[in-house]
């Protein structure tokens, strides 16, 4: 099966069970929401899927093959890209160069061939730069193409992180609270971008607190509370779940 899956995954930090027997499946062309109160294990799950943490129990599968042993770098090469809750941009570089870094895997040139400026390196990098440029324009940062990333405002940083992740041509994109700190209008733009990414066949995991946004854009929503799944299903099912309303939505 083409999917990124967690099967009965657990993770402890000291005596605290951050995740307890959590399973979820992220399919291509689908937006999967991951919601829950602070400290419920959402970001821990994202870190397990992208390889920053290693699980204590359970298994992480990519297209049915276990990838627990794969490092962050290796998982990036397998097509798993992510953004960060606190944007991690390269502040001294331009917006375009930041997006370009995401295409490192496709550049795949040796140090020597770069130092000698071999024609194939120059040609390939020109094409990657053109694609990165289109992505920057696509996410709506054309106005800031050559601006230093340190001069960007918060929303711009969030969209640039998405452009950089997309430059890696991922099959699965993990977004860690992408709507954090955005205005209503900006969340609208984010939603449109997420839908476009989904329609391109990429599986999107959306860790998010803005539940309106999550219920609008996701086809599956998983709700965590203190490391355990309390509801999983379509937005309608989850929104009307009594337990979800009690611990999180507060209806």
């Amino acid at each position: 099966m083409t999917a990124l899956q967690a099967q009965a995954v657990s993770k402890h930090f000291g005596g605290i069970r951050a995740l307890d027997q959590v399973s979820l499946t992220l399919r291509p062309g689908e937006v999967h929401g991951l919601i829950g109160p602070n400290g419920s294990g959402k970001t821990t799950m994202l870190n397990l899927l992208s390889g920053y943490y290693t699980k204590d129990e359970g298994v992480i599968l990519l297209n049915s093959a276990p990838i627990d042993a794969a490092s962050v770098r290796h998982r990036a090469r397998l097509g798993i890209a992510r953004t960060f809750q606190k944007p991690r941009l390269l502040e001294t570089l331009s917006v375009l160069d930041n997006a370009m870094v995401g295409a490192w895997r496709d550049a795949s040139s040796s140090f020597l061939s770069a130092a000698l400026a071999l024609p194939f390196v120059t040609r390939r990098e020109a094409a990657l730069r053109e694609r990165a440029r289109e992505l920057v324009l696509g996410v709506g940062l054309g106005h800031a193409m050559h601006r230093r990333a340190s001069l960007l405002e918060h929303a711009e940083q969030r969209f640039l992180e998405i452009a950089r992740a997309l430059a890696a041509r991922p099959r699965f994109l993990l977004l860690d609270e992408p709507a954090g700190g955005l205005t209503v209008a900006e969340i609208g733009h984010l939603e449109a971008v997420v839908r476009t990414v989904r329609d391109a066949g990429i599986g999107v995991l959306l860790v998010e607190h803005h539940t309106d946004f999550v219920f609008r854009v996701c086809s599956v929503v998983t709700t965590l509370d203190r490391g355990r799944i309390i509801a999983q299903g379509t937005p309608d099912v989850v929104r009307n779940d009594a337990e979800v309303n009690r611990v999180y939505l507060g209806a």
């Binding site: 289109e134 992505l135 696509g138 709506g140 711009e156 969209f159 476009t196």
Partner: peptide
């Protein structure tokens, strides 16, 4: 920020 969706696609 003004996304250009056809371009992104």
């Amino acid at each position: 920020v003004q996304p250009d969706l056809p371009r992104l696609a």
